[in-house]
Structures are given as C-alpha cells and as structure tokens.
Amino acid sequence: MSASAVHKLDNNTTRQTRLAIAGIGLVGLRHAEAIAQLNQAVLVAVVDPSPQGQEAANALGVPCFSDLPEMLASENPDGVIISTPTRLHVEQALTCIRAGTPVMVEKPLATSVEDAMELVAEARAAEVPLLVGHHRRHNPIIRKAHSLIQDGSIGKVRALQVTCWFYKPDGYFDTAPWRKLKGAGPISVNLVHDVDLMRHFCGEVVSVQAQAAPSERGFENEDVASAVLKFDTGAIATVSVSDGVVAPWSWEMTSKEYPVYPNAPESCYLIGGSHGSLSIPDLRLWTHKEERDWWSPISAASMPCERTDPLLNQIEHLVEVIAGTAEPLVSGEEGLRTLRVIEAIQTAALSGETVHLPLPEEGN
C-alpha cells in the first residue's frame, strides 16, 4: 500500500480511505467494484432510498442510508462519490461540501451551468475538493494520446472528427424513466465525455453550431445531434452523437474499457494535425515518410500503450486528492467548462444560431 495514497495516523501506521457512494445504480456499482479491488480504499456506506439500493448494500456488506446527511453524520466518510441522477448532483454535492467532505460527482456536473457555477464557487470558498467523474481522462489510452499531441507528434491540431453512435435498448430507459426526460438525452449523458476529451486534447471551445432531432421513441429528449466546435487554438471539430443508431463507432465499443460492451476493431476519434494524424482508441499515428504531400506515401505506426482500468485509476486518484498529495485531474472548474460546451450545443441546436463561449479567464 502506498503511503502517499492513504491517511497517516498518530502512531505512524496507515489506514484505508473510507468512501461512500450515493446512488448505487449501474455506475455506482462500478465504483463499488473498483473500490473493492484497491488496498487504499474501503466502501463504508451506500446512500440509496430504493429497494434495489438496499439489496445492493446488503450484497456489498455495508449499511444503506436513504438520506445523505444521515449517512454523513453516522459514518463520517473521508469522501463521497455521487452517482445519482443528474438533477440531484448539485444538492447532494453541496451537502457534502458543507460537511467538509471531499466529493466526486459523476458527469455531467449539473443540469445547468448556473447550478454548476454555484457548486464550484461554494467548493472553492470552502476549500473542499470537488472532482468530476470524467473517468476517460484516467485511461492510459487517453494519457498516451494527450502526450503524443502535447509532444507535437502530429504538429498543430487543425481538425477533429468525433463519432458517438450506438443503440440503447428500450429496457435501458424503462428501468430508469428519468432517462426519457428533457436534458437526459445523449448530448448531456454521453457526449459530455467526448467534449471533455476534446477540451483535454485541444484547449477551450470558443463557439458552437449544432443541430438535433427529437427522439423517434417519443421521449422528451433528442436521439441524434451534430455540432461544429471551434477552439481557441483555431482547431475545428465535427461531432455526432446518437443513442438510436446501430453502429460500432463509439468509445464504449472500440476502447475495450468496459467488458459488458462488445468490441469492434474501429476508432471513434480522428485528430488531424499539420504533421500527422492520430486515431483513437487504436492509437495509430499517420505520417508521411518523406515530404508532407498528398502524393507522397503515408503510413501508420501503432503507438505502444499500457492497459489499466480507468475506474480503478480514478479511485486511486481520488484517494490521493483526499490525502492532499495530488490536485484533481478533473476539478469542478473543469467539469463546469465542459458543461458550458454541452449547454451551448443544446442552445445552438434549439436556436439554430452560433453560440459564443467565454474563455476561462473571462469566466469559469
């Protein structure tokens, strides 16, 4: 066990970081599984008022609370992971922050930029760590891609193509009806991951144009959308998302990140630069062997990369942040900036107009 990732006690021994999870659905269970695999952390409680929550807590061997304040008072965890429906994120995260408890909130951070700003401001004022669960940044594939881009392996990034297409079965929506509501469509639920990575790779988005189409299943939200994003570096991205298209081109089906999804030997991100291009997640780096010239031969080299579970890496990072030995990789401010882009896509799709965004120095 790494001493840098645990709490020191007075007798110079160490103890595991005590974590609680609010919301023990699909994502919450994955966090619980990750915690169980680590020596640095231990799950001490679940907050979930549903019968399924109680059953899950029993299976995990931890107490189940229906109320977050009650759990905080009873268990006094070192940190809380919030994986409840998005509409509950801000209220629950504020409860943790006001108790002085570090918190990691699943993406998206909030249902609106306004609410997220309140949360980020209060966390900053209280000096309580606020992290956002954009776990893909903890994937070694993304770390390697980011390193290649930063090292100039493809030159200056000029263009990105991002595809996020898959078909969610009816049962996905029936088991959690909130997924049918306005604001819970693939733009906010799925594309938020891809937007976060585009920002991670290329900088800040300064303008957005977008189109969306209503759900063909009759839900309140959209089921397909496309956007054009312009970055402060001058790069331009085209991105398309749908949860009603049968296709292999999504992070879930190409990255081998989560075994429940079948794997397809494809890529979902293409990043084009002035000296080369990179496809992700297969990490194939395309360059000309001689002159940069469309008449010159071009070839690809597969970049070596380790493979570790990003959810495990994310929990390890959370433990280090709680211990004060690391700064958040995806802070509340970072989650807010990504949410600004998501909200801009939704606004642009409704209005048909270009939406301009402030740079971080002009606003969080």
Rank of each mutant, 00 (worst) to 15 (best):
V27T: 04
S215D: 12
A213D: 06
L109E: 02
V205R: 01
L60I: 09
K230I: 05
G183K: 08
L270C: 10
E362K: 12
A323M: 07
E114C: 01
S83V: 15
A45F: 01
I81T: 03
A73T: 14
V113A: 02
S250K: 07
P177Y: 11
L94N: 02
I21H: 13
P108K: 04
V228W: 10
R158I: 15
R307C: 06
E75S: 11
P214A: 15
A110E: 04
G100I: 05
S66L: 12
Q92L: 10
P304W: 01
Y172F: 15
G61P: 03
L283G: 01
I142Q: 04
E334Q: 07
P102K: 08
E361T: 13
A22H: 05
G203S: 06
V44Y: 05
P281M: 04
A225K: 06
A116W: 02
K168E: 08
K168G: 09
R137W: 08
G218D: 06
L229C: 02
L339S: 01
N12A: 13
L229M: 12
G218M: 15
A99P: 08
G25M: 14
I322R: 12
P169F: 06
G185H: 05
V224R: 15
V260C: 09
A301L: 07
P169K: 11
V128I: 11
A123C: 05
